[in-house]
């Protein structure tokens, strides 16, 4: 899933400093699962903003609403009645950065992102998420025991580990596993170490963001 985290409240307060009434919109997709922008987080942020502004003597009206998803127009369309003539100064989106862009495309009202969209990843345990994919558009992880060196090696080495690997940790930080050490261990475990022997060829990054913004068209799914 897309993993995100809420921006610091101080930054958000600066964004909304001139507003009196805002619509805070959550998303029941990925950001609900990673506890960053679902109904619950909308409630917490809404309350925090009201507390802050009430304390300043400059109350902010925060209307809370959570959509099924913000990355599909049919759900974003549901905001239309709320935004019609209710005097909102801005929409605050708690979705990944796709959400505010979809809202901005549809409505003529300033939209602000409440989250920093951080990575494509998964939960290591409750409350801990890590990056697993860089969406390079051409998956090669089967060559590396099912582990991704592009997203998980600090230098995206395809022929690692580099000389900085020590005690299974990355030279960049002891918090980061050396994915190449893990790839090595896994290949030994699978009895496939010889697969790491050839020099892995230079990657074609044209399927990645380097080829320009990407689009997928599925004719079979069109209505």
């Amino acid at each position: 899933m897309v993993v995100a985290e809420r921006k610091p409240i101080e930054e958000i307060l600066a964004m909304v400093a001139d507003f009196k009434k805002v619509l805070l919109v959550g998303c029941k997709g990925c950001v609900t699962v990673c506890c960053a922008g679902g109904t619950k987080e909308v409630g917490i942020l809404g309350s925090a903003l009201r507390i802050a502004r009430k304390k300043q003597g400059n109350p902010l009206e925060v209307v809370e609403h959570t959509l099924e998803r913000q990355c599909d127009p049919e759900y974003v369309d549901q905001l239309a009645p709320m935004l019609a003539g209710n005097g909102f100064d801005a929409v605050l989106s708690m979705a990944c950065s796709v959400g505010p862009q979809f809202i901005a495309k549809k409505y003529t009202i300033p939209v602000y992102p409440m989250l920093n969209t951080t990575f494509i990843g998964g939960a290591l345990e409750h409350g801990v998420w890590a990056e697993f994919c860089q969406s390079c558009g051409n998956c090669i992880i089967h060559n590396f025991g099912g582990l991704c060196p592009i997203a998980r090696c600090s230098k995206s080495l395809m022929n690692g580990p580099c000389g900085g690997s020590a005690n299974k940790k990355c030279e960049v930080s002891p918090e980061i596993d050396c994915i190449w050490h893990l790839i090595y261990d896994r290949m030994v475990e699978l009895g496939q170490l010889e697969k790491l022997r050839p020099v892995f060829p230079i990657k074609d990054w044209s399927t990645s963001r380097d080829g320009g913004p990407r689009k997928i068209v599925r004719e079979d799914l069109k209505l």
Partner: peptide, 8 residues
Amino acid sequence: KILQEVGL
């Protein structure tokens, strides 16, 4: 932490 951030 939130209270600190909102000035309480």
